[in-house]
Amino acid sequence: MTDTITMAHGAGGKQTSELIHGIFEKHLGNEYFTADDAAVLPPVCGRLAMTTDGFIVSPQFFPGGNIGKLSICGTVNDLSCMGARPLYMTCAFVIEEGFRIDELDQIAAAMAKTAGEAGVRLVAGDTKVAGKGQCGGVFITTTGVGEIVEGVRMSGACARPGDAVIVTGDIGRHGTAILLARDDYGIEAEVTSDCAPLWKPVEAVLSSGLRPHVIRDATRGGVGTVLYEIAAESGVGIRLETEKIPVQPAVRGVTGMLGLEPLYLACEGRLVIICPQEETGRLMEILHGQTCTEGAAVIGCITAENKGRVVMTTQIGAQTLLPEPGNELLPRIC
């Protein structure tokens, strides 16, 4: 095989086949991984959840992961948020001509490892090659299907006044890690992405009989965006205790330098969980015992007043609105 991707790898002939066997099947192959036009899967008895997500990230390798790991986590976590055990996934690659094959190999290896951790199988895939300059490096789209745990009905519209608001770890790390990896602002800090598959902790919560009202993963737009979505969909207010929101010191340092709000920075391994107040204690106990959610914290509660808004109790004990997320994040200097 050549060292880099050429247009021939996307032409459907010998080179395409080499790429599929030499990279994708090598890492991702399993009993259901298909060489035919579609994967054939055994019957499932529960209700299904299905989701799809496209991934573009620059740079494609960053502290704590790469685009391959991200593309599995994103879809696994979306399924998990619906209480669905991730079963099968498909992936479609758009690879830029000239992309290094050893890097593609690392990306596929990360996908395999993460899929294994989440217990999901890749069953079908597609590869296209785009001409130089038509896409940046590699774009991945993953689609996943999962089986919803019996009796679980969660949605963004299910938050009720009095419920507790939980975040499963310190926030803003993925966004900060990417910002640092791009090196646009000359800042150095040891921040790794929080990128992680979260089915295991969700499974632990659900199998203990707890029934949270809402689970959302805080990706693009961060925890702040997710909270505004929940407030709108459920027609409730959210009150946050500013000082209880976990933020790693280095993330605070970076956001302080650039005048950014950590609540709007992307996470890729953090859930926002809204649960009945009386379940909070047990839920926290379970989360603290699982990998990736050890740092879970109760950061606020759902209120009947201030519908559609997120209100923060500040350091001086006053209340203020969390500004609604909107524009492109730009550093504030002058």
Binding site: T314, Q315, I316, A318, T320
Partner: peptide, 9 residues
């Protein structure tokens, strides 16, 4: 001042 909610007190 706004972020801390100072006006409100």
């Amino acid at each position: 001042i706004f972020r801390q909610g100072i006006r409100r007190i």
